[in-house]
């Protein structure tokens, strides 16, 4: 990213750029290797999702089985609010299938963890959203990330200690099992924005005001810079358009997107939503860091596997402020 873009972003968030900017990786050299992203068709939550996810993982991360055997994994769904009239949260059937997939691969333990930004009763939210009913051993494997014990990590240009849940920091892999949605402050919320839920409310409040003060786009990038042991699964079977992330309307996109490079996954999702990822600020900022495995957002930097974008893309409605994101 050009420095003037950083300055502009900082001005919007009210933060001094010189003090806090996230710097590109000084060690990054030469062309970045391509990031692999799998696009999978999935028409409904009623269908058998485990095999769909397994084929996606085989395509996006072929050596996952060797890497994950005996490891501890945290699935981070998007569990925000519950409204039976729309589709705010990652569907629990997809989370269940993801959990089964990683256990089948030989993971030692697969936690499910979330820290909603508005609601204090995470368990009730999980209950209402169907998680406790569908994931039979939910009670023994759920972590309320808002209330977990915490540990500091240096963040935001080394300007502060950010306290994050120990469970998240201690696992071997964090899987962002996100929902494909438009977002009225960020344009789109996908696997990267989903990490807002890892910031503990017990330290930063409900809502997590710190992230807004640091700037939403900047915070999205920073959280993903910190949590590099990640993988993304985006639930676009039924997605949300319009005034997301809560008050939008459902749209059947019939797709699941998976990959290790969360920015590449989110860029692919944006293209499936007929939004221009190159104009989504946090994706631009992630790309500018030039960190290996985070930030391939140009089509030429991404190796798409599975379905073609052109076959599944459909235009999502966005609020007026983000009309400029629409692809022709």
């Amino acid at each position: 990213m050009k420095r003037r873009r950083l300055l502009a972003a900082a001005a919007v968030s009210g933060i001094s750029c010189s003090k806090n900017e996230i710097k590109p990786d000084a060690n990054a050299r030469g062309p970045m290797p391509k990031s692999t992203v799998a696009i999978l068709k999935a028409a409904s939550y009623e269908q058998e999702l485990l095999s769909v996810l397994e084929s996606g993982l085989a395509a996006a991360w072929p050596d996952a089985a060797q890497t994950l055997r005996g490891k501890n994994i945290l699935l981070k769904p998007n569990l925000v609010e519950f409204d039976s009239n729309t589709c705010i949260n990652t569907d629990p059937r997809l989370v269940l299938a993801a959990r089964e997939m990683f256990l089948k691969l030989g993971a030692a333990r697969v936690w499910i963890g979330e820290g909603p930004g508005h609601r204090r009763d995470t368990w009730d939210l999980a209950d209402q959203a169907g998680y406790r009913k569908i994931v039979s051993d939910f009670d023994d494997n759920f972590v309320d990330l808002n209330l977990d014990d915490v540990r500091p990590v240096r963040a935001f240009g080394d300007s502060m200690d950010l306290y994050l849940p120990k469970t998240l920091l201690d696992v071997d892999l964090v899987v962002s099992v996100a929902k494909m949605k438009t977002h009225h402050w960020a344009g789109a919320t996908l696997s990267m924005k989903n990490f807002f839920g890892i910031v503990p409310g017990a330290i930063y409040g409900w809502p997590k005001n710190l992230l807004h003060y640091q700037g939403i786009d900047r915070s999205i990038v920073e959280l993903n810079r910190i949590v590099r042991h990640s993988f993304a699964i985006v639930d676009g079977i039924v997605a949300m358009q319009g005034n997301g992330p809560i008050q939008g309307t459902p749209v059947g996109a019939g797709v699941i997107v998976m990959g290790k490079d969360v920015a590449a996954v989110d860029s692919t999702c944006a293209r499936l939503m007929k939004l221009d990822p190159l104009k989504i600020r946090y994706l631009q900022d992630a790309a500018s860091l030039k960190l290996p495995g985070l930030g391939a957002i140009e089509e030429t930097q991404i190796e798409q596997r599975g379905e073609l974008i052109s076959g599944l893309a459909k235009p999502f409605h966005v609020v007026d402020e983000f009309a400029h994101l629409r692809l022709a």
Binding site: Y204, G205, W206, N209, L210, Y213
Partner: peptide, 11 residues
């Protein structure tokens, strides 16, 4: 606020 120098909230 939840923390100093942030906005004020209900709780």
């Amino acid at each position: 606020p939840w923390r100093p120098e942030n906005n004020s909230w209900v709780e």
